[in-house]
Design a protein around this nucleic acid. Structure first.
Length: 644
RNA sequence: GUCCCCGUAGCUCAAACGGAUAGAGCAGCGGAUUUCUAAUCCGCAGGUUGGGGGUUCGAUUCCCUCCGGGGACGCCA
């Protein structure tokens, strides 16, 4: 018969034999959640899977461990939700199997709240986490499926700056997350090594003094190429700036200022146009097979790759393929011919295109341009060729593009074009977009860009953070051997940046600020790493093998339960992160888990626990948490030092 | 002009299919160390979720509208 709780204004039922069951149960329970779902299923008729999806944690821990909302079922059964909740509670409390995992059932309004048998829950979760035969959070959902992930994709002869970090870090995490779920993953670095920009590079090179450029390239490598690129873009940039000034309201009303600006633009225009014309011609020459330019192109590509590799090494990123845009040159020619011969292209305004909007359609889209009016190809052409190539080569289940939000229109166009060409797999292509990195300049926030020189080189950022961390290590842990200090500083410094980048939902824009990016306190990567190091420290001081045979049902404290419930969620979090292409979910989970563990750490002793059995059980808890923190960090591409 | 995204505490961000009293961190104030790492933990304070309307038992979440910010719009990538 139900008891009434006047504080919570709800009825609750207590299973009479729960004390006995708590002491003896647990060993054969694999998962509290699954048992719960099965028993609720038995009395509601809803399938287990569905119930598993509906169960959620109540807003406050005191309210219970799992809640089942009765709204949907109530509608079906034509009953008021609170009435149904009460009825279900009365049935469930007599359920002997359920009583092995739940000691109290409450109907609180339209919700059915379950209080788990704490020891049973902790024990079941930890056994699963520590099971060496079935790695936790691993799954077979991706068995036999290949996912292509296109990420990083920097341009050659340009610096690798913080803006590129998003695609690289996000893509690499998606690679690791999908691998854990059993997918075969092909990570592709679609280098921006083809296109009109190459023409600009060539032109700048040709205009430089032959002796000077050789010396400079030998001495400064990529840095020199960037300087050339920024230099050749200078006239165009100046004009753009003047044009923007012209749009300014205050200037528009002053005729003399206006005339002055217009004259300045007119004066500079011919030179800029000349550069543009020559650059385009040079790229066309490369596409037409000029041997000298080809050699220069290869040189620039190699120079860039050598520098990029250092950054990739530092971030722990590697690719299955570095087939850049230039790679598709031959394949592209074949495709273009087929499209033309097959009558799939339309001639429009001097270019060959695939029209994307019907005549008179209300949503107008620019066409997908396959051949420009000068006969050259566009990135549209190369992306189309690459998509088809990837389908043929990998037979992908999904084809992901980790590219910034501003390019969404381009990818919508690409997928639409594929569809128009009759490729049903166009629906398997996904633009995993992310917000842009902006930077404060005065009181304006502007996007980072190489052309304007408004950017922060990646290495500068990483080095700064590593230096900050090095000082902290020096202060907090001076006894650490010097070599280890350096390793820790690198791991924590780089980890802080990588975590910061991934700690928010990917589509939000980031305004770069040094303080936010480099803080080692609060909701940060170092906080998670520190928590991990603390756990390692306990295990190190214990000094022996973790007693896995310990009686884990002894773990019944609030803080122990909170940690176990976090660990229980991990596999679902990984799945959600994969399904939504959202590694930030793992970052959030890591912070929550760290908070739960630190809370436990502050309130309870492990090595000086009240008795030996409890110490053993807590050691398993510590070990499991340590392992999952390391695993989560690993998925985000962050290493977990054992001391710091 | 057309289309897309965003607007949550002073700041940076959370909030699972629409669910219970909207949560963290930073900054501010006040506490905890004879203790397994204080890069930690606890407490206080901080909100008309941009405004208005609608759908719903229930809206930060979905729809409409207005305001504010950002972005994309045929031969750059």
């Amino acid at each position: 018969m139900p008891h009434y709780d006047p504080v919570r204004r709800c009825h609750f039922w207590v299973y009479p034999g729960w004390v006995y069951l708590m002491a003896s149960g647990g060993a054969h329970i694999h998962h509290v959640l699954h048992t719960l779902a099965r028993r609720v299923s038995a009395c509601t008729g809803l399938p287990d899977e569905k119930i598993l999806g509906m169960l959620r944690p109540p807003p406050k821990a005191e309210m219970g461990d799992y809640a089942f909302p009765c709204f949907e079922l109530a509608k079906e059964k034509k009953k008021a939700p609170p009435v149904l909740a009460k009825e279900l509670a009365e049935v469930l409390i007599r359920d002997v199997e359920l009583a092995q995992v739940v000691h109290r059932v409450e109907a609180e309004g339209p919700f059915l709240n379950f209080h788990a048998q704490r020891g049973v829950l902790c024990s079941a979760v930890l056994r699963k986490v520590c099971d060496p035969t079935a790695p936790y959070a691993q799954s077979g959902e991706g068995a036999g499926k290949t996912i292509v992930i296109d990420y990083s994709a920097p341009n050659i002869a340009k610096p690798f700056h913080v803006g590129h970090l998003m695609s690289t870090v996000l893509g690499a995490s998606l690679v690791r997350i999908h691998r854990l779920l059993g997918y075969k993953v092909e990570g592709v670095n679609h280098l921006g090594d083809w296109g009109t920009q190459c023409g600009y590079q060539f032109l700048a090179w040709q205009r430089a003094d032959p002796k000077v450029r050789e010396e400079q390239l030998a001495a400064r490598g990529l840095e020199y190429l960037v300087e050339l690129y920024v230099g050749i873009n200078q006239p165009a940039k100046t004009i753009k700036g003047l044009e923007e000034e012209l749009l300014d309201k205050n200037i528009a009303v002053q005729p003399d200022m206006r005339a002055k600006l217009e004259a300045q633009i007119a004066e500079r225009k011919p030179a800029a146009d000349e550069i543009d014309r020559e650059a385009r011609a040079l790229f066309k020459k490369l596409e037409d097979g000029d041997a000298e330019l080809r050699a220069l192109w290869l040189r620039m590509r190699e120079t860039t790759l050598a520098v990029l590799q250092k950054s990739y090494d530092r971030l722990g990123v590697s690719f299955e393929s570095s087939a850049g845009e230039g790679f598709y040159e031959e394949y592209m020619k074949k495709m273009v011919k087929e499209l033309k011969d097959g009558g799939k292209l339309t001639f429009s305004e001097g270019a060959w295109v695939i029209p994307l909007s019907e005549e008179g359609a209300k949503k107008k889209r620019p066409p997908f341009i396959i051949i420009k009016s000068d006969g050259g190809t566009k990135y549209d052409t190369r992306d189309l060729a690459a998509a088809i190539y990837r389908k043929e080569t990998y037979g992908f289940y999904k084809n992901l593009y980790v590219v910034s939000v501003p390019q969404s229109a381009h990818f919508e166009g690409l997928f639409l074009a594929l569809e128009k060409l009759g490729h049903a797999w166009a629906k398997d292509c996904v633009h995993v977009s992310f917000g842009i990195m902006q930077i404060k300049e005065g009181d304006e926030t502007l996007p980072m860009s190489t052309r304007s020189g408004r950017m922060i080189p990646l290495n500068e950022l990483l080095d700064t953070m590593v230096e900050i961390v090095r000082k902290i290590v020096e202060e907090k842990n001076p006894e650490l051997p010097a070599a280890q200090k350096a390793v820790v500083a690198e791991a924590v410094g780089v980890g802080a940046i990588v975590f910061w980048i991934q700690s928010r939902r990917r589509t939000s824009n980031i305004v770069f600020d040094w303080k936010g990016a480099t803080s080692p306190e609060g909701d940060t990567g170092p906080y998670v790493q520190y928590t991990h190091a603390r756990a390692c420290s306990i295990l190190r001081k214990f000094g022996a093998k973790v007693p896995l045979q310990a009686d884990l049902t002894l773990l019944v404290e609030n803080e122990e339960l909170a940690v176990c419930k976090q660990l229980e969620r991990f596999p679902a979090v990984v799945q959600d992160a994969a399904a939504g292409y959202e590694p930030s979910l793992i970052a959030t989970w890591l912070l929550e888990t760290s908070r739960a563990f630190n809370d436990f750490y502050n309130k309870h002793q492990v090595l000086k626990a009240e008795h030996l059995n409890l110490m053993q059980a807590r050691l398993v808890l510590v070990d499991a948490t340590r392992a999952m923190l390391a695993k989560g960090l690993g998925l985000l591409g962050i290493s977990a030092p054992e001391e710091m």
